[in-house]
Nucleic acid binder design. Sequence first.
DNA 1: TTTT
DNA 2: TTTT
Lengths: 163, 163, 163, 163
Amino acid sequence: MARGINKVILVGNLGNDPETKYTQGGMAVTKASLATTSVRKDREGNTQERTEWHRVTFFGKLGEIAAEYLRKGSQVYVEGSIRYDKYTGQDGVEKYTTDIIADEMQMLGGRAEGGAPKREFGGGGESRQSRPAQPQGGAPRREAAPAKSNDFGTDFADDDIPF
Amino acid sequence: MARGINKVILVGNLGNDPETKYTQGGMAVTKASLATTSVRKDREGNTQERTEWHRVTFFGKLGEIAAEYLRKGSQVYVEGSIRYDKYTGQDGVEKYTTDIIADEMQMLGGRAEGGAPKREFGGGGESRQSRPAQPQGGAPRREAAPAKSNDFGTDFADDDIPF
Amino acid sequence: MARGINKVILVGNLGNDPETKYTQGGMAVTKASLATTSVRKDREGNTQERTEWHRVTFFGKLGEIAAEYLRKGSQVYVEGSIRYDKYTGQDGVEKYTTDIIADEMQMLGGRAEGGAPKREFGGGGESRQSRPAQPQGGAPRREAAPAKSNDFGTDFADDDIPF
Amino acid sequence: MARGINKVILVGNLGNDPETKYTQGGMAVTKASLATTSVRKDREGNTQERTEWHRVTFFGKLGEIAAEYLRKGSQVYVEGSIRYDKYTGQDGVEKYTTDIIADEMQMLGGRAEGGAPKREFGGGGESRQSRPAQPQGGAPRREAAPAKSNDFGTDFADDDIPF
DNA sequence: TTTT
DNA sequence: TTTT
């Protein structure tokens, strides 16, 4: 039971290639920085620009997808929640961190740095078969797979959905 | 793989008690109308008010929870997607419907019409233990249970999450 | 005073070039259809795909921006609200429509049909000066201008914001 | 022109009475902490609960409304964006803060600590007329006023909207 | 650190 | 009607 809603929706570009680690249980934990920039006019009419750098974390299957498809520069839609943490650094000082825990991701148009032009994305299913088993350096090769195992959320394993 | 985002977030009050049917496979399909009202000033400075009535559908476990806890007047948060359908009526005319397919729901403060005050809101766990095992007619008796089986979205069956 | 929240977030591609009309007061009203597709596996493991076509309406300055920058095929982020309307057709039959009233829009990567590659977007400010007064057929020429007059929402005409 | 989307949607309860300061220009800056709690089952089937405390900042007119209507315990919907800041403390150590900059707020059912029941929720307009002209200490007395000056977002000062 |  |  959740008491409250903690929802974040981001659209931006990655500032770095995602970095992936694995837990002892073998779960992928992928992290990347995502920039969102807003612009406003100040009183003198000058354009004021400000960029927020969000630390986004992708767990599990989503972490594997992010590792495989996202690269520095990728434009991406991320939906998730905010998580605040506190820890004591080696210098004995308390530090605070804020992370966006992604629970949905979708790659958007555009291309990663050094990547292939967008029409290379979405190649036929055959490229999907021929993909390397392990993500490697270089540009992403095709469009992102689903961010969630089930786009309909609830218990749609039951297939007698009336539509 | 989803291609696109179709997300709706509603906060409003139900205009009727939810109605539940079951599919042949035994899945609950609960429907209710939810009102959201917006207000603006027109050019003459008069307040113009407008209410949208959203047809919300809850499937599966969420449908059972909605049936148990929601009543006419309930204030509720709903997250879902928009679904457009077309069918031919008995008069041979094509009809169009729009539904909000909920994939998350959360009851908010306030009380259903004729319902008991939500004094157990935030109260101790004891009232939670004394709830009847089966939903019965009348007002909802306790806070909404989870809208999703897993608030963390991904594959957190794996318990070695590093937090 | 709004009573309730009625919020829609869409990311998808336009199925047609936007169409713009003007009110007697000179306000632009631009409409376009936006597709979002979701995919799920049915019980037999077959991929089931479903596309929703959202009718999106952009008013005022946003309508002018949409008319200038969006084209068939454009990938776009839209934030707005749902509006249900009812009218009586010339055949005397009541009809129902559902529209998404946009209040924020942002062009995403990718390109419109027949359009130039994305790096043509974002041309310098000079192209902004030389743009035709009226949108014409063909590809959009630069990245979308702001969807809202003020990205900070509140009364930031006051410039003594402490950041 | 914004480049990216940075959107946060929160529903939760305030952990403290809001605190308001004014800029030299006279703009209200109101801050409060808002809790959202999520729950999940761990591998042993134990319920794991976790609360995030969001620091929410309301500027301008919204800051005045928040100061007048919100109290410790208030249940509230907040929409805004995430803002990360860095500063050097008096101890010479760099500190990082994360704030949610609200651009829309709506009070939800429920009541503030020590406050009166929200029985006027949905009640007649008369209690609305009898409200004190100036906010005073104690519990909020009526439903939240609008979070935004204009619920329709765009340039609806122009009143020839075709609906 | 991204992007335009 | 889009997109992949």
